[in-house]
Amino acid sequence: MDLQKMMNLPGALAAFTYSDKGDLQSHVLREGTELTPQVLDLLARSCVANLAIAGMEARGWEAVTGQSGFQPLKGFSVVGLEWSVVVDGNCGVVVKNRDADYEATFNALQAG
């Protein structure tokens, strides 16, 4: 995953990769951001947890309702007050809400 390329996404404040267990493996932070490597480490762990929960919910929803279209999941995002974290697979990008292009970010992560 080319993190520098991810940093070119609109509003990107940070980009990071993590293991299947949620260990932060690599990261890039925009200079001047309030984010720290420690927050990214916690974010990475929450990303793994949230993707797993969303996957379980998607599988259950499709089984119970018969409505398809969720699986396989293409990502998850948490929208904070000032920024959002967008993740898919083992990579995440933090984008400023004001400038965020969620579709472009999800697409870039999938193409990653």
Partner: peptide
């Protein structure tokens, strides 16, 4: 947190 998004297929 303001919200969240689940991107399905």
């Amino acid at each position: 947190v303001q919200g969240w998004i689940v991107r399905g297929n």
